[in-house]
């Protein structure tokens, strides 16, 4: 699904954030991306969603070489990716329901279909009762879950999550991980950047570790 070959990223006026990173993530795989703060985890995810472009190297996503993808083609690429950030970027002048509906509105879904899907997604993250609330009336954890619902609602083949459990208490974090695992079992490829080693250690998925922009280890997942 994702193929990195010798990918480097240097931000302007900055040292290299990623140095010759190579790995493959198969369709249907679930993996964690770990490393110290500043190791390059967010950068790696941003390269996949083309929020940033690689300086050198090649990234293939779903059979398409995206390193040189034209800007006009980026929206279609992003519709295949459910993006989850530590800061969920919700729009406070819209209700929770409208926030979650946004990806479907953009893709041009039918009105009735949008309502159905949004409620299903909100139900999965346990926030169906808050559909009419404004995001600024929610707790940090609830906001994070709305962000997750928005990423899941269009059922994208790939989910990229950057510190998705950063704002959640351990129980809620575990719930969200279970949710990801359910999606993974349904065939969705998932890559989660996190430095929550306690949580990662509880789960036995593949683990990619970055250190100062270099991929220093790639441990296979296993079934307990």
């Amino acid at each position: 699904m994702i193929h990195f070959s010798q990918v480097s990223k240097r931000y302007t006026n900055s040292r290299e954030a990623l140095t010759t990173v190579s790995f493959d993530l198969e369709k249907g795989e679930m993996a964690f991306l770990t490393g110290h703060s500043g190791a390059g985890k967010s950068t790696l995810l941003k390269l996949i969603a083309l929020i940033e472009r690689p300086t050198t190297g090649e990234i293939v996503f779903d059979g398409i070489n995206i390193s040189r993808l034209k800007n006009s083609k980026i929206p279609l690429l992003r519709r295949k990716i459910g993006l989850i950030f530590q800061d969920p970027n919700l729009l406070n002048d819209k209700t929770v329901l409208e926030n979650v509906a946004l990806p479907l509105v953009i893709a041009g879904y039918r009105y009735q279909e949008i309502g159905k899907r949004v409620r299903a997604a909100l139900d999965k993250v346990g926030l169906l009762s808050r559909e009419k609330s404004r995001p600024n009336t929610l707790s940090a954890g609830e906001k994070q879950r709305v962000g997750i619902a928005r990423a899941l609602v269009s059922k994208p083949p790939l989910i990229l999550a950057d510190e998705p459990t950063g704002n959640l208490d351990p129980d809620l974090a575990a719930d969200i991980m279970i949710l990801f695992e359910q999606f993974n079992q349904a065939g969705v490829t998932i890559l989660i950047a996190s430095h929550d080693l306690r949580l990662i250690n509880q789960l036995h998925h593949r683990r990619l570790t970055l250190k100062d922009g270099q991929l220093i280890s790639d441990e296979e997942g296993y079934i307990v």
């Binding site: 969603a49 929020i51 006009s72 929206p75 279609l76 690429l77 992003r78 519709r79 990716i81 993006l83 970027n89 919700l90 729009l91 946004l102 990806p103 953009i106 893709a107 928005r150």
Partner: peptide, 11 residues
């Protein structure tokens, strides 16, 4: 946000 979730420039 719209850009991040795949909204086109025209949209």
């Amino acid at each position: 946000v719209i850009k991040l979730i795949g909204g086109t420039n025209n949209f």
